[in-house]
Design a protein around this nucleic acid. Structure first.
Lengths: 264, 264
DNA sequence: TCAACTTAGTCCTATATAGGACTTGACGCC
DNA sequence: GGCGTCAAGTCCTATATAGGACTAAGTTGA
């Protein structure tokens, strides 16, 4: 028995409800990826190999893998193999949102400047999202320059226990990086799904001060709850967007094909 | 041969690129639904029946039907059948967006008041979206009251030729109805997908005037491009949202499971 | 050296078949 | 009438099998 065949055969746990075998299999593979058995970029065993390990037929394994593709967990390439999705895989893609110029041209967030990093036990909507009312959180404020054209203010909360190593990273290391990529690459915590809300409100003083805007300025208060495998909450982010002719495009994906295009 | 078996056998057209049979089949069924062979709420023939008509195996038809479910075109119910999705099917669901109160409770748009209806040849971002620079459009302005709690201003453009009957409807008929439902039910044009952008900008005078806001008030300018079967553009909508502690939740659906919940 | 060919590995499609699970309506019985 | 049983219709899962298509790497030959 090689190291390759360490996956538990499905249906081994006496679970309450019976689940379809293809779901059990995708669940099993997902667990293995979560546990780090394969890292982003790694190739999974071939379909037929998995079918043997899982004691299932090829068709059943294929169906399980298709559902993992839909979740954004793996990618399959004809003739090459099945790979764990890295953050880089969707780079530049409209997976969750992006900024656009007036004509529809895409703007890239290129410059991040850390304003503050702290660990806090403060509760708020983030603690509700994480489901840990008394939890400790890493709280990072940043100014994000979009395409060197305009700036937004971003603050992000992460559970301190899950990302303890992050608190030990220097600010220099955190500067200029995309959190989404970093969490996927260094913490095996890719953002697979988001829940987003928006409102127009007055920007708080700490924001207007840093962005050099008049006090009481209105802006978009944009909340992004980031979820990873099994919809586990990993990031609570709030972005303050001042008035601008730049627009935010929100990804809405149905039927497997992301909506994109140049028009506004 | 009954009226039921009018679907063309797949692969009959000498198309340029070869498509997979299951794609051809879902395409074929989609065309039939588009053409009105089955209307929203109607039951499609059973899987095995379709397999016969399409000269395909059961598994292939099932795969085609699953992809139509993903697109939101049909719904399948174990033991009952496969039905063309009506607009009502997703009522109250977070298919594209919804309004939330501060605590996360859902607010329903309950009251629509028509401000103006006109037919215009004016060009703008909508004509770019529709791809008809010289087209005629039905342009409708409305005040939408969300849960009787706050008001937003909505304007919508529709291609005049496609929805000619709509221009003939009286304002009384248009008052108080959801366009999304009406287009699906009366025009066989369900909104299956959207492209959404947002920006914080000053609200135009015609909006502040109707909503009784101070001139120059900032707000969210929210553009929603609605698409139907095969991503055909059907509605271009702009919603002006004044400052409020009410938030807009945008649906972001990945892996087939819509993200929802009570938290903000 | 380099292009063409071959081969192994992998994913993709499609079929025929079998049984299970759920829904609905009909039927018979009390 | 009300209840349980039954059967037909439908979707759901799973298997075994076959062949095709794409990729990457190695081999051959001019």
């Amino acid at each position: 028995m090689t190291a390759r065949s360490r996956l538990r055969p499905v249906n081994s746990g006496a679970s309450g409800v019976a689940k379809a075998k293809h779901q059990q299999i995708s669940d099993e593979i997902l667990s293995a990826i979560e546990a780090g058995r394969w890292l982003p970029g790694d190739r999974l065993p071939a379909e037929d190999q998995l079918a043997l390990e899982m004691r299932a037929s090829l068709g059943t394994v294929q169906r399980a893998l298709r559902s993992l593709v839909e979740m954004g967990v793996v990618e399959r390439h004809h003739g090459r193999g099945t790979f764990v999705s890295g953050a880089r895989a969707q780079e530049g893609q409209l997976r969750h949102f992006r900024f656009l110029a007036e004509g529809g041209k895409q703007l890239l967030p290129v410059y991040f400047r850390i304003v503050g990093v702290e660990t806090t036990g403060e509760s708020g909507p983030w603690s509700q999202f994480f489901g840990t009312p008394d939890g400790e959180y890493i709280h990072i404020h940043r100014v994000v320059s979009v395409n060197d054209e305009f700036e937004v203010f971003s603050e992000i909360y992460l559970p301190a226990d899950r990302f303890a190593d992050l608190a030990r990273l220097s600010e220099a290391t955190l500067n200029g990086v995309s959190f989404r990529d970093m969490l996927a690459e260094r913490f095996n915590a890719p953002t697979l799904n988001t829940r987003q809300t928006m409102a127009c409100q007055t920007l708080p003083p700490r924001v207007t001060r840093v962005l050099e805007l008049p006090a009481g300025q209105y802006g978009i208060v944009w909340t992004i709850c980031g979820m990873s495998y099994r919809d586990a909450p990993i990031t609570w982010q709030r972005i303050f967007v001042p008035p601008s002719d730049r627009v935010i495009e929100i990804a809405t994906v149905f039927g497997g094909h992301p909506v994109s295009g140049e028009a506004g």
